[in-house]
Design a protein around this nucleic acid. Structure first.
Length: 526
RNA sequence: GGGCCUUUAGCUCAGCGGUAGAGCAUCGGACUUUUAAUCCGCAGGUCGUGGGUUCGAUCCCCACAGGGCCCA
């Protein structure tokens, strides 16, 4: 139907014209609310006023009343039978409304909790009370009045005045069931935060994790820095980078996949304890514990080795758990995990011995792709065709060893092929001083005694570049000439660490999906 | 990349080869101490999108898209 047809038809059906046209569904709800905003304006009330002087949060108002009530019970105050506070001004979002004609109860929610407001026409006056009839669930309002306890025992602000601070023109999700639709929860996280306490709890936990991590590091004399996100070479880890381009410099750049190499340049520069908390970007798929952008802490400590880092990690993680939950023992979560005890020390497991124990494979005896592949096939471990040796062993570890590590453990001493930035053990050409921390069957951190021999480091990079060519391995690490020049000037012996903050928060929150922790996880186009 | 599940009113969910249901929210009415307030009444839907089968498809089949879970 063309526009003209539609116009002609509506002209022919006058009952459908103008304000008689009833908009469908969601649009109708929006129009109803816009109409109420217009009515507020007609009565001289700005539905979006610039300022409201709040004197108390919901929590403070509740606390104030409880204090007054205790004093009244001791005979202090004008009316010991009906204690009431001084006038307070609170503000928050209308979460529920129970109207009774000339009185109404409103559940208000602010950033600190909830409190009920109680509005009566005869206390407010007819004109002021009209605002109450124009309120919708979702509106943000201010309420002025003293705090009392209602007959049913609910601490409530008895409204002298109600002010609309922000008229909401879209409805909130179901007040009882909350927001269930996972897609909307992730795409419109603000609705999740409003409707579901758990979403807010996780968001606050994430902040507390980062805060306590920072204070742990600062207490130990670490300096926090920020290094480039746009980098000419995406090195320092084995991952595929995002590519971008700087127009004026006419130069291709990448989003960093690690902060490692820049931080080690700062170690060369003499900042002996340094860390960065920041976003990394890896161009890979999404699943319950991967997101293309995620946050890590990396730290580097001169004159330390991986044993020092190991004890720092177990101390840091248990400290953060204690600070954020009050205990180093995380409670069991039904259907997710048993109780997790993060109290140090965490068991150190020799990687070679552990693989041998779980699979019978000794990676020192199966030192090439052919023999390792054969040993894997014998044990029904999937062999990805065309994989480098290190990738195959990584598969053995992730499928046969990691799942058993539910309580915190360190796997210690990795083969050199998997670890191009780690220093060899003094007594071995094949094994490096590297460990990874595991909890709940997933990797939490990765750390090593940093390779500071510039000749060996160049050789390792070259082997990674060769692996990229020989095996078509896009994720092989990249040679970074600037970094090599830096350590050719001399990097002291150093212990380094990388730890995923989103995964650490998942662990503490008892969540199985990183999407419950990231406020705005990556989503497909709609 | 493969398999399974899922998409119905603003939200939470039923449903069925014969043309759409509930609760909450909205709208109208009653109600001055409620708290999932209560009571009465009304309205609200391209049943994810596009094809196919059929006299007839929201339902069966196929493809695609979004979301979830498992595997690779």
């Amino acid at each position: 139907m063309t526009n003209q047809d539609q116009q002609e038809q509506s002209a022919n059906s006058p009952e459908e014209s103008n304000e008689e046209v009833s908009a469908a569904g969601e649009q109708k709800l929006i129009e109803d609310r816009l109409a109420k905003a217009a009515q507020l304006r007609d009565k001289g009330f700005d539905p979006y006023p610039p300022r409201f002087d709040r004197t108390h949060t919901s929590a403070e108002a509740t606390k104030l009343f409880e204090y007054v009530e205790v004093m009244a019970s001791n005979g202090v105050g004008d009316d010991a039978e009906h204690p009431r506070t001084e006038t307070v001004r609170i503000a928050g979002r209308v979460m529920a409304r129970r109207g009774m004609g000339k009185a109404a109860f409103i559940d208000l929610k602010d950033g600190y909790g909830s409190i009920q407001a109680f509005a009566r026409q005869n206390t407010m006056g007819d004109e002021a009370y009209e605002i109450v009839n124009l309120l919708d669930i979702g509106d943000i309002i201010g309420v002025e009045g003293s705090v009392i306890r209602t007959r049913r025992g609910e601490i409530s602000v008895e409204a002298q005045q109600v002010t609309v601070l922000t008229k909401a023109i879209r409805p909130l999700p179901d007040k009882w069931h909350g927001l269930q639709d996972q897609e909307i929860r992730f795409r419109q996280r603000y609705l999740d935060l409003i409707s579901n306490d758990k979403a807010m709890k996780n968001a606050l936990l994430r902040s507390m994790v980062v805060q306590s991590m920072r204070s742990f590091m600062h207490d130990r004399g670490f300096i926090e820095v920020e290094t480039p996100i746009l980098v000419p070479v995406a090195a320092g880890a084995q991952a595929t980078p995002f590519e971008t381009h700087h127009n004026q410099l006419d130069r291709d750049l990448y989003l960093r996949i690690a902060t490692e190499l820049y931080l080690k340049k700062l170690i060369v520069g003499g900042i002996e304890r340094v860390f960065e908390i920041g976003r990394l970007f890896r161009n890979e798929g999404l699943d319950h514990d991967h997101n293309p952008e995620f946050t890590t802490i990396e730290s580097y400590q001169a004159y330390a080795d991986y044993n020092d880092v190991m004890s720092m990690v177990e101390n840091m993680v248990s400290y953060i758990a204690k600070e954020t939950t009050g205990s180093m023992v995380l409670p069991a979560v039904e259907g997710v995990r048993p109780e997790i005890d993060l109290t140090p020390p965490w068991p150190r497991l020799d990687l070679r011995a552990e693989i041998k124990k779980q699979t019978g494979i000794d990676f020192v005896e199966t030192r090439d792709v052919e023999s390792l592949s054969a040993a894997m096939r014998e044990r029904n471990i999937h062999v990805e065709a065309g994989s480098a040796w290190g990738r195959l062993l990584d598969k053995v570890i992730s499928s046969e060893v990691e799942p058993n590590l539910v309580q915190p453990h360190f796997l210690v001493d990795y083969p050199v092929e998997m670890s191009p930035l780690a220093k060899r053990k003094p007594d071995s050409d094949e094994i490096v001083e590297r460990f990874e921390g595991f909890v709940m069957g997933t990797e939490l951190c990765n750390a090593f005694t940093e390779l500071n021999d510039p000749v060996d480091q160049r050789d390792r990079f070259e082997q990674q570049e060769k692996q990229r060519l020989d095996f078509g391995d896009d994720e092989a690490d990249r040679l970074d000439e600037d970094f090599l020049v830096a350590i050719e000037h001399g990097m002291p012996p150093t212990g380094g660490l990388g730890l995923g903050i989103d995964r650490l928060t998942m662990l503490i929150a008892g969540e199985e999906s990183i999407r419950e922790i990231l406020l705005f996880p990556a989503m497909r186009n709609t």
